[in-house]
Design a protein around this nucleic acid. Structure first.
Length: 458
RNA sequence: GUGGCUGUAGCUCAGUCGGUUAGAGCAUCGGAUUGUGGUUCCGAGGGUCGCGGGUUCGAUUCCCGUCAGCCACCCCA
């Protein structure tokens, strides 16, 4: 509405940054669990890095310009060319297989709409130098485990998998000619997004016999792997690919993600550079765009970087994923980053004064706690405690801390109901002295309060 | 790039059949016996009614344009 960020770009206010951080945390945790290591490259690249792969028509979708050194440059729209460039430059020195991940911010000059902005963050996970389908299974397992890490289940998200070689073998067995294959791919790719009659029409136009048109559309509509295996398992053009795919599915089972996966021959992924097994993650209700997409691109590094290595990878953006987590209520309340304590004036405030109160704040900070305090001395001394506690509670602070009239120092939990809130009493002299045992006791108590609060909510 | 819908406070929305100083709830800020407190009460700030032009004595309201957002297409991440 009002003038804020540029169209398609986002401001991340603290609440929104917390959500982004939640997603990033899950991405990094799972990627590391699968022994991938993080890398990054520059957000600005030479324009021809992208035109080399995709042709000049891609320029219309790029943020590109001429820099002050007269270089044609573009903000990166995807990470794979950068990865290819980096791997190619050190190809002989890198231990294979390379298992790398990155969380780049990517840019595209396109009209923004739901789930699709001009800028987003995308987890990229890639394996370079391994041709086995075990690598394909490993890769999909990473993506699925990220869903688990974020609290999603196989009832929320489906992994749809296919294999270009398998699809090709099936088509050849059915009698589709080499020249007709691209047209068939185009139709299959769009199968779910256009009327069946239109798909049939396009196939007929490509010279495919009416009976075959029905067979192809039937396969695209949802053939199970068992049906495919039964029909094409011993066909010469398809046998090898059926067997490989069966091994792939077995590996997925062994890696514990089998129940998330369904065969979907209509997953083609854009026609471009994929050469083998491809997959996409979708929300099970089918309301959103793809959460994640990837697959094997064995020839890309050669065409892009001049190094002939098999490779595969996927990209998972933060936008659609964030929408899904939001819809399912899976973003945690912002308590994880909550401030530990806020100083308020208790009955003993008059005996100690503001300077000594700030001394307490400083001791707590040195002990590693995050501590806030009112920055107005008169207010601290003059404002009713209930108002100060109120303010701390509203600010999301975990506990209030104050001097009591009897000389003790007390912390009071702000996490649950206010009536009968748990408190923790300390000797003021020891607390002000930063006594290690007192600080540890306070730390344990605070952790206890957070655990209790979490159990009540969950 | 094409088409449809929508723009009033930080958020969710009222309202004006064209008429003087545009409203509510929530949120924010201040206050309500120097103090066991998320309640309640009082008060304050905050809007060129997206922007520009046209019609009119007068436009936030009607018309046109434009920008932005949403949705679909195109394309892809």
């Amino acid at each position: 509405m009002s003038s804020g960020a540029l169209p398609g770009f986002r401001d991340f206010y603290p609440d929104e940054l917390a959500r982004r951080a939640h997603i990033f945390r899950a991405w990094r945790a799972v990627a590391r669990r699968y022994a991938f290591v993080e890398y990054d490259g520059p957000p600005l690249e030479s324009l021809d890095l992208y035109t080399k792969k995709s042709g000049d028509e891609i320029v219309g979708q790029l943020y590109n310009f001429v820099d002050k050194g007269n270089r044609e440059v573009a903000l990166r729209p995807e990470m794979t060319p950068t990865l290819a460039r980096m791997v190619a430059a050190r190809a002989s020195a890198l231990r294979k297989p390379v298992r790398w991940f990155s969380i780049p911010q990517l840019f595209r000059y396109e009209r923004a709409q739901r789930g699709r902005l001009r800028e987003h963050y995308q987890l990229n996970v890639d394996i370079v130098g391994e041709a086995s389908e075990v690598a394909d299974a490993e890769l999909l397992a990473v993506a699925v485990d990220i869903m688990r890490e974020l609290g999603l289940t196989s009832a929320d998200v489906r992994a749809r998998v296919s294999d270009r070689r398998l699809l090709n073998g099936i088509l050849v067995t059915l009698g589709v000619t080499e020249e007709q294959v691209p047209a068939v791919y185009g139709v299959v790719d769009k199968f779910a997004r256009q009327p069946r009659e239109l798909s049939a029409e396009k196939l007929a136009k490509a010279g495919i016999a009416p009976a075959l048109v029905e067979r192809i559309l039937g396969l695209a509509a949802g053939a199970t792997f068992e049906a495919v295996r039964a029909e094409f398992g011993s066909a010469p053009a398809a046998q090898e690919h059926v067997e490989r795919f069966a091994r792939y599915l077995a590996h997925l089972d062994a890696l514990g993600v089998g129940e998330w996966v369904v065969l979907d021959l209509s997953i083609v992924r854009g026609l471009a550079y994929y050469t083998g097994i491809v997959f996409e993650l979708f929300d099970a209700k089918g309301e959103l765009r793809a959460i994640c997409g990837g697959g094997r691109y064995d020839t890309l590094l050669k065409s892009l970087g001049g190094v002939d290595l098999p490779a595969l990878g996927f990209g998972m953006g933060d936008v659609v994923l964030g929408e899904l987590l939001n819809d399912r209520g899976l973003f945690p309340a912002a308590t994880e980053e909550a401030t530990d304590f806020q100083l308020v004036a208790g009955n003993g405030a008059g005996q100690h004064g503001y300077a000594e109160a700030l001394g307490l704040v400083t001791v707590l900070r040195r002990a590693g706690f995050s501590v806030a305090h009112g920055m107005n001395a008169e207010r601290y001394m003059g404002q009713a405690t209930r108002n100060q506690v109120d303010g701390a509670k509203k600010a999301g602070v975990s506990a209030a801390i104050y001097f009591r009239e009897d000389g003790a120092t007390e912390a009071m939990s702000l996490l649950g109901k206010m009536s009968g809130a748990p408190t923790h009493t300390m000797d003021t002299t020891a607390a002000l002295g930063g006594d290690a045992a007192v600080m540890q006791g306070l730390r344990d108590w605070l952790q206890q309060q957070r655990d209790n609060a979490r159990n009540q909510n969950g």
